[in-house]
Amino acid sequence: MLKFIKGHMETIEGIEIYPIISLLIFFLFFVVLFWWVFTAKKDYVNEVSQIPLDSKNDTEL
């Protein structure tokens, strides 16, 4: 089955660009994520980290 898929994919013109594009998207996503993490304001991080512990956000079922 894998041999059939590999043989079929070799006949598709321009298919070699798709793995490169997906790797670039993956890499860029994590670069932007790391940039956001390192430039985030400490006050914002502290405020958001307290949300799960905040009792006024509790809802009763």
Rank of each mutant, 00 (worst) to 15 (best):
G7D: 09
L24T: 07
E10R: 09
N46F: 07
K41W: 01
V45I: 09
L33M: 06
F30E: 05
F30Q: 01
P19V: 00
T59C: 06
M1N: 15
K6M: 11
F30S: 01
I21Y: 07
F4N: 11
F38D: 04
L23P: 01
L2Y: 12
F38C: 05
W35M: 11
L53M: 12
L61M: 12
V31K: 06
W36P: 02
E13I: 02
F29Q: 05
M9W: 05
N46M: 14
V31F: 00
P52V: 05
V48R: 08
L53E: 15
E16Y: 02
I21L: 08
D43A: 01
L24R: 12
N46R: 11
K42M: 09
T59E: 09
F34S: 01
F29D: 03
G7W: 02
V32Q: 10
G14S: 02
D58W: 10
F38N: 06
E47Y: 06
D58N: 06
A40F: 00
M9R: 04
I51L: 01
L2E: 13
L53P: 00
T11W: 00
M9T: 06
P52Q: 07
W36Y: 14
L33W: 05
F29L: 08
L23E: 04
K42N: 14
Y44K: 10
W36I: 06
I12E: 04
I21G: 05
V45L: 11
H8L: 15
Y18K: 10
L53I: 05
G7Y: 00
S49N: 10
K41H: 12
F34Y: 11
E16P: 00
T11I: 03
S22A: 14
I21D: 03
I12C: 04
I25N: 02
F38H: 06
F26M: 05
F34Q: 01
A40M: 15
M9F: 12
T11S: 15
E47W: 05
V31G: 04
E47S: 11
V32T: 03
P52F: 01
F4W: 10
S22L: 15
K3I: 10
I51Q: 03
I21P: 03
I17E: 07
L53K: 15
I51G: 00
V37C: 11
I15E: 00
Y44Q: 07
P19M: 00
F29W: 11
K6L: 07
E13F: 03
Q50S: 08
V45A: 07
A40T: 09
I51V: 09
E13Y: 04
T11K: 05
T59A: 13
N57G: 07
L28G: 07
E47D: 10
I20K: 08
F29G: 02
N57E: 04
F38G: 02
K56E: 02
Q50H: 08
L24F: 13
S55T: 10
T39I: 08
Y18I: 11
V48H: 01
D54I: 05
I51D: 03
S55N: 13
I15D: 03
L61N: 15
E16H: 02
E47M: 12
K42E: 15
D58T: 12
H8D: 13
L2G: 14
W35Y: 11
V37I: 10
S49V: 08
W35G: 08
E16W: 04
I17D: 09
L2C: 11
I15M: 05
D54P: 02
M1Y: 14
